[in-house]
């Protein structure tokens, strides 16, 4: 009983403790606010700049969601293709791995060349950085169907489409949601990189401007806003995951 209360409170207590430690360290070692502002100074900046933080955060949220939506669509489609055909898997694998190895920061200038400064580069950066985990995980879920399940269905004359819709897709859903949690944070990184380099709006742009002004507390305030948004979006994915694939967690708890 007592233990369960502690478990519930733990996330809040640990977060509070983290900021308290940070504050104490800044004061005890008298670290300059230019190097590492204490949480109290960041809070002041949060309050002072709440208007621009709010509008820019909303913009970033939009960019991220748009890029993330694109990667879900594209990632699912490619993942299903790659997972269902050994030929495509063999052919596309080096391309996908190679593409994923490219630092996406290096892609942003190309996007600016193509689309100019605006909302497209952040959305596309978020997309290219976050689709890969979805492709890989969906493909893995499809490619690891138990051979016996396939035999049972094939012996009954099931088509590949049948096997895909009855077994493959439901089976790869837990993999898919696992990938979404990785992807959503990556999409954040992507949109902020895009905004820093090729946008007049968004948290990324705000950070660039704030650091040019040496407004370090504002930079940190913007980072805190990003972290909070990230937690929020992961929580949304978590919620949907539990609704859709609760069976996967429960079946593991039951030991098989």
């Amino acid at each position: 009983m007592k233990r369960s209360i502690w478990l519930r409170l733990a996330p809040y207590l640990f977060t509070l403790g983290f900021f308290a430690l940070w504050e104490a360290a800044c004061r005890a070692l008298s670290i300059s606010a230019f190097v590492l502002p204490p949480p109290s100074a960041i809070w002041t900046a949060l309050v002072q700049y709440q208007k621009p933080l709010y509008t820019n955060a909303f913009h970033t949220l939009w960019m991220t969601s748009a890029g993330f939506a694109l990667s879900i669509l594209f990632g699912l489609a490619v993942g299903l293709l790659v997972g269902s055909s050994r030929l495509l898997r063999a052919g596309l694998n080096p391309l996908l791995v190679g593409f994923n190895a490219i630092p996406k920061v290096a892609v942003v200038p190309i996007l600016v060349l193509w689309f100019g400064v605006g909302w497209l580069p952040p959305v596309l950066t978020a997309f290219v950085i976050s689709f890969f985990p979805i492709v890989v995980n969906v493909a893995t879920g499809l490619a690891t169907i138990e051979p016996e399940t396939e035999d049972v269905l094939k012996a009954l004359g099931a088509s590949r489409l049948d096997i895909m819709t009855k077994v493959g897709i439901p089976r790869s859903l837990p993999y898919f949601f696992g990938a979404l949690k990785v992807s959503i944070t990556l999409a954040y990184v992507g949109s902020v990189i895009g905004e820093q380099n090729a946008s007049n709006l968004g948290i990324g742009n705000l950070i660039t401007r704030a650091s040019a002004d040496f407004n370090v507390p504002l930079v940190f305030a913007a980072l805190i806003v990003l972290a909070v948004l990230g937690i929020f979006l992961v929580a949304v994915v978590d919620f949907v995951e539990n609704r859709m694939t609760g069976w996967a967690k429960r079946s593991q708890m039951a030991g098989g």
Binding site: E146, E148, T149, D151, V152, K154, A155, L156, G157, V167, P170, R171, L173, T245, W247, A248, S251
Partner: peptide, 19 residues
């Protein structure tokens, strides 16, 4: 010549779909 549809199969692993 192709899967005959008049068979039923069961294996050591029951392979029931958990969802």
């Amino acid at each position: 010549a192709e899967p005959i549809k008049i068979t039923g199969m069961a294996f050591q692993n029951p392979v029931l779909l958990p969802w």
